[in-house]
Write a protein that binds this DNA or RNA. Structure first.
Length: 232
DNA sequence: CCATTAATTATCG
DNA sequence: CGATAATTAATGG
């Protein structure tokens, strides 16, 4: 399955291009292709480490990743979970050239590395590219604003509901789906303890909102879940 | 409303 | 089989 889209051996015909790269011309893509690296990661491996320099853009073309804010002593915070095709950049690219979060593989990953040198070049020469890049930064900022509001103002039921709905709508788009997260990670995603995660999920199951068996989640009462997420 | 603690059980390697 | 993850109930801020 990894062959799909790579058989042309060029970025020009690759079907796993992120939205930002779709704005590039053929010659720009050819240029990029000649210096890119392909990498595979196993589940749990660190793809980018918080604090380390940003030498390349990382385009995740297969697999799921989590973006983790690491704190000293306190539990980690999962900022977001992303699926392909996702371009890992980071707020530090034009600031201090460091990662401000770690990127960790939730599943086996296929990724392409593109030297940040190209980012700087394309932004100067290709306005549509610049616009798309800025939009992707803006989208992730808006997402984070929503998450701050959620974590600060919603109760546990609301936060879990939002997490489940996010995974359903934005990641899997299927109804029974396999949770790629442990209870601990679900806790880090929702700002609660793993014990509370267990308890709330059990309550949802008892009330017939979800059927959660091990890592399989089946949403039974979507209206109810959306309602709890909204008013939480 | 929710974290913490602790005890118990299930699952993984 | 030992380690790690998950569940459950009780307690208190």
């Amino acid at each position: 399955m990894f062959n799909d889209g790579f058989e042309e051996h060029s970025c020009v015909h690759c079907v796993k291009k992120c939205d930002v790269f779709k704005a590039l011309t053929e010659s720009e893509l050819e240029l990029m292709y000649r210096s890119r690296y392909e990498t595979f990661y196993r589940q749990g491996e660190v793809i980018a480490k918080q604090g380390s320099p940003i030498s390349h853009l990382i385009s995740i073309s297969e697999g799921l990743v989590k973006l983790v804010l690491e704190t000293s002593g306190e539990p980690d915070i999962i900022l977001t979970i992303e699926r392909p095709v996702f371009l890992v950049t980071g707020p530090g690219v034009f600031v201090d050239n460091r990662y401000h979060f770690s990127v960790i593989a939730l599943t086996p990953i296929h990724a392409c590395y593109i030297d940040v040198h190209y980012l700087h070049g394309f932004i100067e020469t290709n306005p549509e590219f610049a616009k798309r890049f800025y939009r992707s930064v803006g989208e992730s900022t808006i997402n984070l604003y929503n998450r701050i509001r959620s974590l600060n103002q919603k109760n546990m039921g609301g936060r879990i509901s939002e997490a489940i709905l996010y995974l359903h709508h934005r990641i899997f788009e299927s109804n029974p789906f396999e949770l790629p997260l442990t209870r601990q990670e679900l806790a880090e995603f929702t700002g609660m303890t793993k014990e509370s995660v267990s308890r709330i999920l059990k309550e949802f199951k008892e009330e017939g909102i979800l059927d959660v068996d091990d890592h399989t989640v089946h949403i039974l009462n979507m209206d109810r879940l959306e309602n709890i997420a909204r008013k939480g």
